[in-house]
Structure formats: C-alpha cells, structure tokens
Design a protein around this nucleic acid. Structure first.
Length: 280
DNA sequence: AGGTAAACCTGGACGC
DNA sequence: TGCGTCCAGGTTTACC
C-alpha cells in the first residue's frame, strides 16, 4: 500500500496520540506477519513512547528499552482507536495505551512486519537502505555516511547500469521511499520514459528526476498521501493526492499535458504507466 | 556483481 | 450465483 508519503502521513497522525503514552499491553492475535514477531517485542511493555520516526517506508516507535520497527507492506495500516472498538478480521496487533486508546495494526495480505530493535543498534532491515529523498525529513537513523540525494549522486550511481530507470529508482538502495505510484509520476514530470536504461540518463535528466521526486513526495505529503483502495490515515481520513495523478491508474485516458492516451507497459513484473509523447 | 524471477498473502474485479 | 484468473501501493530470497 504505502509509499513514503503514506508512511509519513501515518507518522504525523500517530505522533500526537503516541508520544508520551505508556504501553500497557501488547496483544498479538497471530504470532507472525511477514516474519515471526520476535518475543523481545514484549520488552516494550510498560515503557513510554518517546518518539516516532520514519526511515524509508519503516516506522520506528522508540522507548528507553528499545524500539518497535513496523513496515506496512502492501495493505497494512495503523490507527488509534478507542479501546472498546471491536477488532475486525485482519486486525493482527493491538497496543493498549494508558490513555485508554489502542494502537491497532490491520493488514490483510500480511506483507507488513513488526520487529524489535534493541537500544543503540540498527536493525538489519535498515542496513542496506539508500539516502532519504527529502533532506528535511531525513531521520537520525540513516547511516551518517550516506550520500545526499542529489543529481550528481544519481548520475554517478547510474553509470554503467543497464537496469531500466524505473526499477533503478524503485530500488531502495538507490533512494528510499519511492514505489510504483510515485515513480510513475516522477518519471512523467521529469519527461523520462520508464523503460530507459538507468545508465543512459544525462545530467540534466538526473536533475529533473531528483527535482520531480522531491517535489511530488512533498506535495503528496501535504495532501495526506494517495488513497487507492483503502489507505486511510490514523485518524480515519483518506489522502487526496490521487486527484492529482498524471499517469498512475490512467491507462488509455488522455495525457493531461498533450492529450495522447496514457500507455501501460510491464517492466519487470509491474505495471508502468507513461505518456509516449511527453516522456522520452 | 548486476539483473531477473519467484516467493510471501488476501481480496476485489473481471470474464465465462 | 459460481468459479477461475489476474491484479494490487512491497521487499526478500533464490537463482542466472
């Protein structure tokens, strides 16, 4: 489901409810999501949540005794509810808080995860991630020696790569947070065809791509993310960015810039939407 | 080492 | 109405 803007929207919605709250009980309705939920997660019982941060598409909830590391996968969502709200099917995890609220994780496809990160360590899942695209939102959990996400960085990193630029940008080792929606929108705005080889990008195209990725992610965050199917923020509101999509989900519809029908191609296993006239 | 395919899951949309 | 097929916002793992 969620790309960086949806995870950031979730973080923004959760923070006022969670920061300073005490975790009274962690209820697991099943032992595993994508992976087994480690028993150490119960270390967080009785702890106070001191901060909630995001690294790539992961959310981290911190306490003095360690941190919870969440990923929402394709269909996961986190909401804060009154404690008497009955769980639905696929409501897999509840945290009961001293405020009388519960933090509830819902994830039908179970591609999400809940892991434990010990104090002053970095979970292996975070180790190979590339730079954050938005410097103003870069978390302190990124390795200090990561490069900045700039046109120079993108240009140098793409040299010699035969991989299509769309897959290259979705690779979380290149830049984090960009998934299938926002890569399509960014490539459109930068006027770059998704099937181009990454190594064929010139400096000016790298500049356009960095600007497009940053601008679109910022704009989507300001809109509360994109709601397709069932994304809602922790307070139950949808995102409003889908009204501003130029190519994603618009196969056959006229390009909002030139009027040509939007095309679809399979790149790797995934659908890629683009305009054959505007993107070169 | 880089690149690709398969794997993990469920639910909804579609065609017959 | 029912069943089979395909598709979906992600990422790891196993292979060439």
């Amino acid at each position: 489901m969620p790309e960086l803007p949806e995870v950031e929207t979730t973080r923004n919605g959760l923070a006022p409810h969670l920061i300073g709250a005490r975790i009274n009980k962690i209820l697991l309705r099943r032992p595993n999501l994508r992976w087994p939920i480690p028993v150490e997660i119960q270390t967080l019982n009785g702890q106070f949540i001191t901060a909630i941060t995001r690294r790539a598409k992961y959310l981290l909830m911190h306490t003095d005794a360690g941190s919870a590391l969440w990923h929402l996968g394709m269909s996961g969502s986190l909401r804060v509810l009154d404690a008497d709200v009955q769980p639905r099917e696929h409501d897999h995890v509840d945290w009961q808080l001293d405020s009388g609220k519960i933090l509830r994780f819902y994830d039908p496809r179970r591609f999400g995860c809940l892991m434990f990160q010990a104090p002053d360590t970095m979970h292996p899942l975070l180790a190979a991630l590339g730079p954050e695209p938005l410097t103003e939102l870069s978390s302190e959990h990124a390795s200090p020696n990561l490069p900045e996400f700039t046109a120079d960085y993108l240009y140098e990193r793409s040299r010699g790569r035969s991989q299509v630029v769309k897959s290259f940008l979705m690779d979380q080792a290149t830049v984090v947070g960009v998934g299938n929606i926002y890569v399509a929108e960014s490539l459109f705005q930068a006027r770059v065809k998704p099937q181009r080889a990454a190594g064929s990008l010139n400096r000016s195209e790298c500049t356009r791509l960095v600007n497009a990725i940053q601008g679109i992610l910022r704009h989507a965050i300001a809109r509360g993310g994109t709601t397709l199917r069932d994304f809602i923020n922790p307070d139950g509101a949808p995102g409003y960015f889908e009204q501003e999509l130029f190519v994603y989900g618009r196969e056959g519809e006229p390009c909002k810039v030139c009027g040509q029908p939007i095309k679809a191609a399979k790149l790797g296993p995934r659908q890629s939407l683009y305009c054959g006239k505007c993107q070169r």
